[in-house]
Design a protein around this nucleic acid. Sequence first.
DNA 1: GCGTCAATAATACATCCGGATAACAAGAGG
DNA 2: CCTCTTGTTATCCGGATGTATTATTGACGC
Lengths: 216, 216
Amino acid sequence: MAVERRPYRREAEDKRRAALITATLALVSEGGSAAATVRAIAERAGVTPGLIRHYFTNKEALLADAYRQLMVGMTEDSAAVLTYAPSDPHARLAAFIAASLRPPVVDGEAVVRWASFIQETRRNPAMLDIHHQTYLGFRDHLQGLIAALPHPREAAELRHLAIACNAVIDGLWLEGSTLPHAFVPDELVTIGVRSIGAMLGVDLSYYLLLSEPPKT
Amino acid sequence: MAVERRPYRREAEDKRRAALITATLALVSEGGSAAATVRAIAERAGVTPGLIRHYFTNKEALLADAYRQLMVGMTEDSAAVLTYAPSDPHARLAAFIAASLRPPVVDGEAVVRWASFIQETRRNPAMLDIHHQTYLGFRDHLQGLIAALPHPREAAELRHLAIACNAVIDGLWLEGSTLPHAFVPDELVTIGVRSIGAMLGVDLSYYLLLSEPPKT
DNA sequence: GCGTCAATAATACATCCGGATAACAAGAGG
DNA sequence: CCTCTTGTTATCCGGATGTATTATTGACGC
């Protein structure tokens, strides 16, 4: 009596790897790092557990790839708002800040994903490297927006301002994501734009309104 | 043939619970939440695994107690400097900011502990409550320091300023803890004091020097 | 159509996990 | 010195975990 074997389709390597990474991130979002077991990932991706070790040397390598994709995607999402933002540098900065402090960037699942992987950066140098690269990527982006303002600044001051503005965004993102009910809608956007404006010596509130997409 | 049984001493409940919590936090610091198994915790605390369920209803309860102790301790570390800080409100605020952006508050292991527990706050309401309480505790502390400045502010503005200053501290703490080599010593303190000063409309740099403990 | 080989499934394994229960003994009270 | 409470250890359980190995089968080249 022949055992009945689960039917399957052969897929391109890219598709399979992407599906496994997507499944990993989804499980981490829902249940933290503990939920991302090889069996759960495989089930979510619609394959059997053994396949994971066919595409990744081990689970750690899968997690590293997932982390990179997560962080690169987050930076791309932040940069996306600038595509259609006004050309005025004040408005562009305000739009960038606002986008970083609203859903979908501010999100409870996002902070769980982020926290899950941050744990790994201490013992895994590759993970720390991903963290470092993506952090600098975001901060450099912000620094570029600050440098575009009509206000001459020295390089050292620019660096300090970028670190500080990045910290404001990170801190507000963190608080809004972990305590969604502690703030009224767009309260963090108001605080973020106002605070960063004060640090830079400009009032961005007007430009925030300017950069808002028209309400339907 | 009698089985040889491990010798032991009876301890007070407080001691045992404290030892188990300490062991839990140490293991989480070193290896993330995955390292804090009941067996590892017991071994670190010098007892056998079964004892954990004698003092805590389950592992989850132990983790909750450990989380509360961790967060309360971090706030106390920041507030401890106020005991011997000058009476000038500017100096007190500067000292509080500086203490929050220096070791032992800024620490790679601390951020691993923090990230490990944050994961739990989404599915465990008790953990979310601890997070909420300790977050508000720290923020209220900061708000009190801001309110003590000789500058009249309305309640709503005070709240916004406290949220913003807290975000600066959180963000810089995060960056300094995860990327210790990305900043020169005390760079984060300088940035934090300068940024928060700008947000509050005061120059705290002078008061930071004033509040510094004498170098040996 | 038909081999052929790699993609995929299936199974096995050693280890670890959190929790339950029962046996034991340490130390206080008499 | 004895007894009793209970803190503590020892043992067991069902299940989950990451990984290694083997068997099968889908799809492509000819």
